[in-house]
């Protein structure tokens, strides 16, 4: 799995490329956690992530809880229908809001100010 991070003003857009499963879960967690500080704002671009396993969802959950604890904010964007369904079915959809595109997510975050 590849992780690309872009800054859009003070928002970090994190693009996950490849399968997000047990073999990449630790890598994602280790790479993302340092970005989480007070009031940090993260957007995950899932456009090139076709599969999120149970371990992957758990990392997202941990990230979401961590963000909440520092009054940060995170959203998902660009989810494939399949991944979106899996999150919905397994009860992980409540952890992070989801937007169709990265731009929508950015707009939402900026308006949220």
């Amino acid at each position: 799995m590849e992780i690309k991070v872009n800054n859009q003003d003070d928002i970090k857009v994190i693009k996950l490329i490849g399968d997000f499963d047990g073999s990449s879960a630790n890598k994602v967690e280790d790479n993302i956690m340092p970005y989480i500080e007070n009031h940090s704002r993260l957007i995950f671009d899932m456009g090139e992530c076709e599969y999120v396993s149970s371990a992957g969802l758990r990392v997202l959950l941990i990230i979401a809880k961590k963000l909440k604890s520092v009054e940060g904010f995170g959203v998902l964007s660009n989810l494939s229908e399949e991944v979106q369904d899996v999150m919905e079915i397994t009860g992980f959809s409540h952890i992070l809001n989801s937007y169709d595109t990265v731009n929508e997510a950015i707009n939402y975050m900026k308006k949220g100010e």
Binding site: Y51, S53, S54, L57, D85, V86, I89, T90, G91, F92
Partner: peptide
Amino acid sequence: ATGKYGMEVDELKN
């Protein structure tokens, strides 16, 4: 529905 991904445990709990 998520049995093919090995996520039946979470699906049933949900």
